[in-house]
Amino acid sequence: MEQLIASLADGLLLGFVYGLAAMGLTLIFGVMDVINLAHGPIIALGMFAMFFISGATGMGLNPYLALVIIAILGLLFGVCIYFIAVHRVLNAPHLSSLLSTFSVNMMIIGVGTAILTTTPRNLVFSIGSISLGPVTLLGTRLVAALIAILVAALLYLFLYRTQPGKAIRAVSNNRAAAELMGIPSTQTLALSFGIGTMLASIAGGLIATFFSFTILAGGVYELKSFVIVVLGGLGNPTGALLGGLILGGLEGIAPVFMPVSWVPVIEFVLFVVILMVRPTGLMGGGR
């Protein structure tokens, strides 16, 4: 029982960060019907940004302060990707946007591998741990989960309480109508893509505070993001956070009863089952 509680706690803390990464993916899909296949490399770039801004060989800035810089860089990078690779194929068939974002994926991985190599990097950073009975929670994971909740709350406030946020929701609901109301849809879509990549890069930065990584490390979180997005409902950011928690909880509970190597199998079985039984996800698709 103690193992189950400890394992579940570890899984849930990770689940918040998974959820944050998946929110970026689902926001972009919800607003512009684009499945961003560059999501994984962007998470990896967030990890490297953390490494270079906070690592001993980099600027040495506190990792949690570095997240602010990573968020700004992620936002700007997303806006650039939007105008270079997404905007022109937005009204084309879905395959075009898939190919386009996949190309961005391959370019980031190609250039990243050439410059950064595939040697694992590690941010030597620890803020201790907290023991609650049988459960020892790592400080870095606990703070990462709290930051993920904070960012999710800020996103919610942004989307529901600010003009640009309302514009994003309007464009998401009906782009033509939003344009008729005077909402600049191109800028709004670029902002949405930027926010999506910002969330992915923040998630990457947080993951770098407790796991080692390479430029290819984002791939596994991209796959998890797809499972989470389907779990929570395509295009639904709140559902993504819930999906992240479910996946994290599953990753915590499953190893208690079976070898750890079976966990991905369980995850993807769940992915298929949700697609078959409830394709809109647990919380329904968001628009």
Partner: peptide, 20 residues
């Protein structure tokens, strides 16, 4: 006696099993 993937970065599930 349990193996982990070569690319594994999260050892928490194994550590919880060791503790148990």
């Amino acid at each position: 006696s349990e193996g982990y993937d070569s690319e594994a970065t999260d050892f928490a599930p194994f550590i919880n099993k060791i503790a148990a």
